[in-house]
Structures are given as C-alpha cells and as structure tokens.
Simulated assay, not measured.
Amino acid sequence: MAASGDGSVTGGTVPLARGEGLAAWRQIADGLSADIEAGRIAAGAQLPTEAALAARFGVNRHTVRRALAVLAGRGMVRATQGRGTFVEAPPLAYPIGRRTRFSEIVSRAGREAWGDLVAAAAVPADPGTAEALGLAPGAPVLELLTIHRADGTPLSTARTCLPLPRFSGFERAYAARGSLTRAYAEYGVGDYTRLSTRIGARAAAADEAARLEIAPGRVLIVLASVNVDGAGTRIQATRSLFAADRVELVVEG
C-alpha cells in the first residue's frame, strides 16, 4: 500500500498466506502495521473502507473489522464515525508548567488547535471542586464539558469548573472562540498561571472513549489542575483526560 497525494491509501498488497496456521485478520493487521511503521502509510492518511480492504485481501468485512480493531487497540489507527479510519499521528510533546496553554502547545507543533463545547451547566460545587477553587461546598460554579483537538483528532476531554457569578455566560465565549485563553480575554483575564497539577492514569470509560474516538479500556492520562489569575485568585479547576498514546507529557521545572 502507499499514500496518495490527498492522504488516502491506494495500491495493492501482498496476498494472504493460506493454510499456514496464521489467521487472516492477524496477517492483515500485521501487514498494515508494518506499512505504518515503515512510513509506507503516512501519519494522518485515510485507510480504504472496510469493503475495499475486504475485496483487496479476499476476505469478508468482519475479518477486516477485527484487524482494524487490533490496530486501534495498539494506538496505530483511529476510527471516526462517518469519516473513516485514519493513521494516528506521532505523540505530541505536551509541556506542563506555569503557563500551560493547549492552543499554544498544539500550534507550536504545527497543528491546528480547537476546543469543542459539549455541555455547560451551573451546578453546586462538590467538595473537591470547592477546595480546589477556595469556595464553600455547594457554592455555584459553571461546569464545562469539552473536547480538545489537534488537526481534528481529539487529544483530551475535560471537565472544567469556574466560579460564579464572575464567569456567567463563559460557555458562550468558549463555544465561539474554541479556547479558554481567548474566552478569558473577554472577561478581563489577560493572563493566568498554573497553581498545581496532579497526574494519574486509568482506563477509559465508554463515554470518555467515545469523545476521544478510542476503544473503551484504553489508557488515559488524568491531569487535575488549578489555575489562578494575575492577582492569585483561583479561577479554574479542571480534570483533563488525555489519550495516553497521543501525547507525551513534559514536566517543566
């Protein structure tokens, strides 16, 4: 296989070995894996449809689907509903320091950054959120559920809480700007810094996996962070879930 000029994958492939004890789906997965690792299929390239691959290898679509599931489990491809299956890009170096900005980090890597607002609601602060923001338990906060993308690929999904009434209507600014930093500017917050970051890991639940376009059970990096404004006031408590094989955290001194 080879990548065409538009990023899709074209061309023939090596016929499957029959009657040698190696399952067809395994041969397909190993062959595609070898092509990806050797660069014959480029990062970001779109694989042919299941039907096209089935015809090429002389197998049924179920066999192809199983092979692609194996590659997705290895973090080599990403299936996007309604768009197709794409080769994953190399992990993005993601610095964690006093000024951690998703948009800046992604842009410096030469990729396009954007944040999608999934949901927003005013809710009473749970004890953990209240402590992080220096509020009384039950104080009103604005809760945002977001997805953060690089060139359309979801890198992370997050639950962010902001104190009310200071940030009333912030969800509209975020939805329009696709960035916390740009939305903060509309509220007079010209700069903000990281007060604390806690890093953990766990498996992805089904709803989290769906937002990140990964298989349930894949490893997530969990970042719990608190940001303060220029006056040192706590303005943001976020719990971010990163697809572990899409980023490489770099902790700065």
Score class of each variant (00 low, 15 high):
Thr100Asp: 12
Pro165Arg: 04
Gln27Lys: 02
Ile221Gly: 08
Arg65Met: 08
Ala45Tyr: 05
Ala175Pro: 07
Ser8Cys: 12
Gly19Asn: 01
Arg98Gly: 15
Arg234His: 05
Gly152Arg: 01
Glu213Phe: 04
Val247Leu: 07
Ala79Val: 10
Glu171Trp: 01
Val219Thr: 15
Gly21Arg: 05
Ala206Glu: 13
Glu252Pro: 07
Ala89Pro: 09
Asp245Gln: 10
Leu195Gln: 11
Ser8Asp: 14
Ala69Asp: 14
Ala55His: 12
Ala231Phe: 09
Gly253Pro: 15
Ser179Cys: 00
Ala158Cys: 11
Leu117Ile: 05
Leu145Met: 03
Ala204Met: 02
Thr80Ser: 13
Glu171His: 03
Glu131Thr: 11
Ala224Met: 07
Asp151Leu: 00
Thr160Met: 02
Gly97His: 08
Ala2Thr: 11
Ala136His: 14
Glu37Gly: 04
Ala231Thr: 12
Asp30Trp: 10
Pro15Ile: 05
Thr238Trp: 04
Thr80Ala: 12
Ala175Cys: 04
Glu50Ala: 10
Ala201Lys: 09
Gly31Cys: 03
Leu117Pro: 05
Leu53Ile: 03
Gly44His: 06
Pro216Ser: 05
Thr153Met: 06
Ala125Glu: 13
Ser156Trp: 00
Ala203Asn: 07
Phe242Trp: 05
Phe242Gln: 04
Arg66Asp: 06
Ala203Thr: 14
Pro91Ile: 02
Pro216Arg: 05
Pro91Phe: 03
Gly73Pro: 03
Thr160Val: 04
Arg172Asp: 15
Ala38Ser: 15
Ala121Thr: 07
Gly44Lys: 04
Arg202Val: 07
Pro163Gly: 04
Leu71Lys: 03
Ala29Arg: 13
Gly75His: 03
Ala209Gly: 00
Glu208His: 06
Arg66Tyr: 14
Ala224Asp: 13
Arg66Asn: 10
Ala215Val: 10
Arg218Ile: 07
Leu223Val: 12
Leu241Asn: 09
Ala183Pro: 00
Asp6Cys: 10
Pro95Trp: 11
Ala185Met: 06
Ala29Gly: 10
Ala54Tyr: 06
Val226Ala: 04
Ala55Arg: 14
Glu20Pro: 01
Gly7Leu: 11
Asp191Leu: 08
Leu22Thr: 14
Leu162Ile: 00
Asp151Phe: 00
Leu162Ser: 00
Gly39Met: 04
Ala158Phe: 02
Thr100Glu: 13
Arg159Leu: 14
Ser168Asn: 13
Ala113Gly: 11
Val226Gln: 01
Leu117Lys: 07
Ala109Gly: 11
Glu112Lys: 14
